[in-house]
Design a protein around this nucleic acid. Structure first.
Lengths: 185, 185
DNA sequence: ATCGACATGTAAGTCGTTACATGATTAG
DNA sequence: CTAATCATGTAACGACTTACATGTCGAT
């Protein structure tokens, strides 16, 4: 709802383009499925918050936000954030690490770290792209969201490093053990 | 499912206790609602993964995990993690910061930082508690999940600090401006 | 005797995803 | 000509939450 109206607040576009914009621009912190977008658009039209005009091709529509829609967007943005109940499948598995086994835990942490590194690289590319493309009004806010992603990714990397070290200390599972330090006993 | 079976893998307990354990022990990264727990328990019983015995009072049941249940838990823990589509209401609002207004953005960031500080304090208390209570097998894995929370909270604090500074630089909204540095012009 | 914690369940409803159905247009 | 992309929608299903309904037990 906010995302759809927000996309249209930038410029008029088709529902398909709304979907692409949400995926490509907001994708790292928000998502809407197809099944959400068209009904939402129909709702917004019914409420007079967007106007539907003929698209470039037969059967397609250009949606444009109305002044009331812009008003409504402001209200929506001011509404309290309701956060989803936490549900972190990685931490759930790691919590039961003694059942899962230390090796599988190490693998999970390494995977999480690799994913975070990739995301971090993506954010750095994205930062460069939007610094070139965004208008000066939007740029600081885009940068804030990218910065959030970067901080989060760096946090995951540091956490995974630390946790892998902790696992090595707790369960010496011979992680490349061919060095000069004498094994215990 | 994993959470319920995992709770019962520690010791037999009532459904009510399962709920409390999930809330109190896994609460910072996982949650199950009442409406999930009892049907899940009934499912697990039907599949022979838990056994129901008479509870201490009439009408109450003690649930205990069976060997097959323990096997199944291992399998579940090994299954790929499916992560929920991202949906961060805070970042969504901040992204549309030029519509929302700089002051409201500042307020959101300050709130997020305050929340993160509180979570961080909670984690530090929790760390002390479980270090005293947990058995040595479980402790490292509990610490890993707490550490994840701490890293995340510290990340949010650093990000909020940075972003507040960025907003001050981009939109000099007179944030406590009574100091010796001359205002521009 | 009454209040809060313990205890188990169900029903209704919300939210959201996935898959399907359909068709136009454009690039190779 | 044909594959990919553009474009719009719906239907079925699944996941989950909230509220309700019911009853026991222990402490004050």
């Amino acid at each position: 709802m906010i995302a759809v109206l927000g996309a249209l607040s930038v410029e008029p576009m088709t529902g398909y383009a709304v979907r692409e914009n949400i995926r490509d621009v907001l994708g790292h912190f928000w998502s809407e499925s197809v099944g959400q977008i068209y009904p939402t658009l129909a709702d917004l039209e019914r409420q007079g918050l967007v106007r539907r005009q003929h698209g470039a091709r037969p059967g397609s529509s250009m949606f444009a936000i109305t002044p009331e829609g812009h008003e409504h967007l402001k209200e929506l943005l001011g509404e309290p954030i309701q956060q989803a109940p936490p549900r972190n499948g990685l931490l759930l598995r790691l919590f039961f690490g003694s059942t899962l086994g230390p090796d599988a835990c190490r693998a999970l942490l390494e995977q999480a770290r690799a994913d975070a590194r990739q995301r971090l690289a993506g954010f750095q590319a994205l930062r460069a792209a939007i610094t070139a493309e965004d208008n000066p009004d939007q740029l600081p806010y885009s940068l804030i969201t990218i910065s959030a992603g970067e901080h989060s990714a760096r946090g995951v990397i540091a956490w995974a490093d630390e946790s892998l070290a902790a696992l090595d200390a707790a369960a010496p599972e011979a992680p490349a053990a061919l060095d000069a330090t004498a094994p215990p006993e």
